[in-house]
């Protein structure tokens, strides 16, 4: 097993939500019956982005903010691989915000599991695009004044194939969301995972999320875009968790004539 040596021990703080995400991902991959040899974990840079090193899979731990374009290139080269991006809120929505917008539009077959702790962990506690208004940090000394980015609403507006939210306070729910995202065959899947940062986010704690998370009612029709958008706009005392939205859009791969037969890499094999 080639997952490195002693120093490939998690570099996370005790009590970090990343442990729960890692453990649940292992379970979800097993439950979804994914062949790990065909699994590629792609990440950018941040505490969340280190996750791929702590599991057994192919790994592309690229640049800060650039996980999605790298995952897109890998998927295009070999669309038989399962591409899971596991990265932080800063990585995906800040530095990588433009790629996020366009990966959803493109509808590339990539699963994005975003560890959303509403803060920049690795760089020691600055605000992230999802930090709450008024969130005070050593940089945002008077509190955040920019309105938080709403990834779910944006994804729904862009007609994303699969839009869900979960949190680390309910691993069973998280596992079910991951399995559902992994099973998505249509195209891009977004799973935003609310996660406490025990060191740098004293506002959105484990308890804070636990008290507010409200599973979406079974009667919700995820193909109803307007209702989904209404759910996505809810935040505060009640935070909906579950599958908000689904769409039946052909994936980018399905729309690419060059990928109609063999994968690109298989077209070259044996030459």
């Amino acid at each position: 097993m080639n997952i490195g040596k002693a120093d490939t021990q998690p570099a996370w703080c005790p009590g970090c939500g990343n442990f729960a995400i890692l453990k649940t991902l292992e379970e979800a991959v097993a439950e979804a019956g994914i062949d790990r040899r065909k699994l590629v974990l792609v990440s950018g840079i941040g505490q969340a982005a280190k996750l791929p090193h702590y599991t057994r899979a192919n790994v592309f731990n690229g640049l800060h903010g650039r996980a999605l374009p790298a995952a897109t290139g890998i998927k295009l080269a070999n669309h038989e691989l399962t591409l899971v991006v596991t990265s932080g809120d800063g990585d995906m929505y800040g530095e990588g915000g433009n790629h996020f917008i366009h990966a959803v539009r493109r509808n590339i077959g990539v699963k994005a599991f975003v560890h959303n702790n509403q803060v920049y962990g690795l760089t020691k506690g600055q605000a992230s695009p999802t930090s709450e208004l008024g969130f005070v940090t050593k940089v945002q000394t008077h509190g955040v004044v920019s309105v938080p980015f709403n990834p779910l609403a944006l994804a729904i507006v862009e007609d994303c194939c699969f839009v869900a939210r979960s949190y680390t306070g309910d691993r069973d729910h998280l596992r079910r969301m991951m399995v559902a995202a992994l099973a998505e065959r249509g195209g891009f899947a977004l799973l935003d995972i609310l996660q406490p940062c025990v060191t740098f986010n004293k506002v959105n704690t484990f308890r804070w999320y636990k008290e507010r998370a409200r599973p979406i009612d079974d009667s919700h029709d995820p193909f109803d875009r307007e209702k989904a958008l209404r759910l996505a706009l809810k935040w505060g005392d009640e935070i909906p968790v579950g599958i908000l939205y689904r769409s039946r859009r052909p994936s980018f791969e399905a729309n690419s004539p060059a990928l109609a037969g063999k994968t690109l890499v298989a077209q070259l094999a044996g030459r």
Binding site: V42, G62, P69, G73, A77, N78, H99, A258
Partner: peptide, 30 residues
Amino acid sequence: ADRYGIVVEQAEDEIAAVNMICGAAYAGVP
């Protein structure tokens, strides 16, 4: 592209363009 079996993609910016080819190279295609 259709004749040679190539995916040609207009990226959202040059940063995406280069990271996409890095991904593709990793997965084995020129």
